[in-house]
Computed example of a mutant assay.
Amino acid sequence: MSRRVWFVPPALNASLRQARFDDGAALDEAGRAAARAAASSLPTPALAVVSGSRRCRETAGLLGLGPATAPDALAAPDTGSWRGRTLAEVSGTSPEDVGRWLGDPEFRAGGGESVADVCARVSRWLDALDGEAAVPDGGLVIGVVEPELARAAVVHALGAPLSAFWRCDVAPLTVTELSGRGGRWNLRCGRPLVGEN
């Protein structure tokens, strides 16, 4: 069965603007306005999913995605003791750890998850969509997910090495589109929700 999956990173909030590891902050007013402006550009999906973070849930609601499920596989990455700290703060106290995190896909950020862990769970979720009865053949799945999950999906779709994870820039409120079946995915990256579709 053919599937279409759109990954949409959340609108901006103060944490994303500060390069802060998710601290549960709400969207800021600019982020809410951007999400509301983008709402009319999304079609109705066969299935809506969301990362469980507050910014993703709020973005999904403002985009009009209605009831969205939050599969464990699409949870925000666990950054352990780094949660709530800025990248600059962590770099100032643990520069070696930041270097390892950016260079070694097996390194566990702040004692939490590694890039390899995140990529593995997103890959399993994507591959399981072939058996998902809730999504008809050709049906669209829209997920409002943390940017790291969209990166993981790109790595999986391309069969790229895990080192490619940090080479993918994923902007807020853009669409990373996958289409395919049987573990083979095609990719279209970075289309803005507002504007050209």
Results as ranks from 00 to 15, higher is better:
Ser94Ile: 00
Ala109Asn: 01
Gly143Val: 13
Arg85Gln: 14
Ala116Arg: 15
Glu132Arg: 15
Pro136Trp: 04
Gly103Asp: 09
Glu148His: 13
Ala88Ser: 14
Glu148Phe: 10
Arg121His: 04
Ala120Pro: 01
Ala133His: 13
Val115Glu: 05
Leu87Asp: 00
Gly112Tyr: 06
Pro105Glu: 06
Leu126Val: 12
Trp125Val: 05
Asp130Gly: 14
Val115Pro: 05
Ala128Met: 03
Gly99Arg: 12
Val118Met: 08
Ser94Phe: 00
Ala134Leu: 12
Val144Gln: 07
Val141Pro: 02
Pro147Tyr: 06
Glu113Ser: 10
Ser91Gly: 08
Gly112Phe: 07
Ser94Arg: 15
Gly131Asp: 09
Ser114Cys: 04
Glu146Thr: 14
Glu106Cys: 07
Glu96Ser: 13
Glu146Ala: 15
Val122His: 03
Asp137Arg: 13
Thr93Asn: 00
Glu146Tyr: 03
Ser123Trp: 00
Ala128Leu: 04
Glu146Arg: 11
Asp97Pro: 04
Gly131Val: 02
Pro136Val: 13
Asp130Ala: 11
Gly139Trp: 07
Ala128Thr: 00
Val90Lys: 13
Gly103Asn: 11
Trp125Met: 03
Gly112Pro: 02
Arg108Ile: 00
Ser114Arg: 06
Ile142Met: 05
Arg121Asn: 07
Arg85Thr: 03
Asp130Pro: 07
Asp97Phe: 08
Ala116Tyr: 05
Val135Tyr: 11
Trp101Val: 09
Ala150Gln: 03
Ala128Gln: 09
Leu129Arg: 14
Ser94Asp: 13
Leu87Asn: 00
Val90Asn: 13
Gly92Met: 08
Val135Leu: 11
Val122Thr: 12
Thr86Ser: 14
Asp104Val: 06
Thr93Arg: 07
Ile142Gln: 04
Ala134Lys: 11
Asp104Met: 03
Val98Tyr: 00
Val141Asn: 04
Gly139Gln: 01
Leu149Tyr: 03
Ile142Arg: 06
Ala150Trp: 06
Gly92Ser: 11
Asp137Lys: 12
Thr93Met: 01
Glu106Trp: 12
Pro136Gly: 08
Ala120Met: 02
Asp117His: 15
Val145Gly: 08
Leu87Thr: 11
Phe107Arg: 12
Gly138Cys: 08
Val115Ile: 15
Asp97His: 14
Val141Tyr: 09
Trp125Asn: 06
Val118His: 07
